[in-house]
């Protein structure tokens, strides 16, 4: 493995049993939230992970941090296999990898002051004590643009943007190498989104963080990311430099997604050809055979039904797309859907 890869997933699967709890506890089906993901997050980069609701992007982010158990494949963090990590090793991973959550109103314990919340990682990992701890909390609050004097206040006394800053300060307290932002700006107002985006960029540069920025907002992802990965039905379908994926996507799904993003330019909007996709995203409990996008793809042709496409070079250097339009590469589908879980 290359030295510049910090986090890496190979054939990662997160399947949830669904339906029928009861006494027998036998699953009625499998929800393939993450279904065979290969992903490398490079040291010091910001990788944007986009996709629509239900595509598994959030589950993937949680699985990479071992916050959701994976059911297949492996995860590596800084050269160490962390797939089955337990005890002290797992605790150390928690220090080195942090998470910022979507809803800043729900992610802070309403009964704990800002100082208590931000200090939690310090206490858990025994990093600072007493006066040192208070000083570090003040330092962290300042780092995220909050006045240290607010340390004694409770979350409800803050606005959404301020709370999100507290959440970021908590995630940074253990001096992590890796930060996952799971829809971290989705519930904020536009002007506040900009503040938080700028803050994340500044922190990333200043602290040399590696950032996984998960969002459904392609504009925001394009703005903050060095590379973009696009997810559809539990699989990465396109990945590459942000400029390439953001302006010249190679996978029909990415093209449709990009064309659907509304732009604040009336003249441009009027001329724009929008690719309107047919129907809804299939359920992750019933993934189509062959290419999983084929039920909605405007370019569907013969191999799409039978061959599950693998990521292959397409477009700009470093850009990859999982689409037969760039040559038929992938796993032939067997008659039953179980064949889908196999991955090259």
């Amino acid at each position: 493995m290359s030295d510049d890869v910090l986090v890496s997933a190979r054939g990662l699967e997160v399947h949830f049993p669904i339906g029928r709890g009861g006494l027998r506890r036998k699953p009625a089906g499998l929800l393939r939230a993450v279904d065979g993901v290969d992903l490398d997050v490079l040291r010091g980069e910001t990788l944007g992970l986009v996709g629509e609701s239900g595509c598994g992007k959030s589950t993937l982010g949680n699985a990479l941090l071992r916050l959701v158990p994976s059911t297949g494949g492996s995860i590596t963090f800084d050269g160490t296999d962390i797939t089955g990590l337990e005890g002290r090793g797992l605790k150390e991973l928690r220090r080195r990898a942090g998470m910022v959550f979507q809803d800043p109103f729900a992610s802070l314990d309403p009964r704990r002051t800002v100082a208590q919340t931000v200090a939690e990682p310090l206490e858990v990992h025994g990093l600072r004590k007493g006066r040192d701890k208070a000083a570090r909390v003040a330092e962290l609050l300042e780092l995220v643009g909050l006045d240290p004097a607010v340390a004694g206040r409770y979350p409800h006394e803050f606005s959404g943007g301020q709370r999100q800053r507290v959440g970021i300060a908590r995630a940074l307290a253990g001096e992590p190498d890796f930060l996952v932002c799971d829809e971290a700006i989705a519930s904020l107002d536009v002007s506040v989104q900009a503040q938080v985006l700028n803050l994340l960029r500044r922190l990333q540069r200043r602290l040399g963080l590696t950032l996984l920025f998960i969002s459904h907002d392609l504009s925001a992802v394009r703005h903050i990311s060095d590379r973009i990965a696009v997810m559809y039905l539990g699989r990465i379908v396109e990945i590459g430099p942000a400029s390439a994926v953001g302006s010249d996507p190679q996978m029909p799904y990415t093209q449709a997604l990009l064309s659907a993003v509304p732009l604040p330019h009336p003249a441009l909007e009027r001329q724009r050809e929008r690719i309107v996709l047919r129907g809804d995203v299939p359920s992750p409990a019933a993934v189509p055979s062959g290419c999983r996008f084929r039920t909605r793809c405007p370019y569907v042709f013969e191999p799409c039904d039978d061959v599950d496409p693998a990521l292959q070079p397409a477009g700009a250097p470093g850009q990859q797309a999982a689409c037969h339009l760039h040559g038929v590469v992938g796993t032939p589908a067997t008659a039953d859907a179980e064949g889908l879980t196999a991955h090259p």
């Binding site: 916050l67 928690r94 220090r95 942090g98 809803d103 992610s107 009964r111």
Partner: peptide, 24 residues
Amino acid sequence: VYVRASRSVGASDLRLLTRHVLPN
């Protein structure tokens, strides 16, 4: 979410139970 958030920074079950779950 705040319980998940505390777990994500490495808080133990005992800590989660006594500091977050029980008070709330």
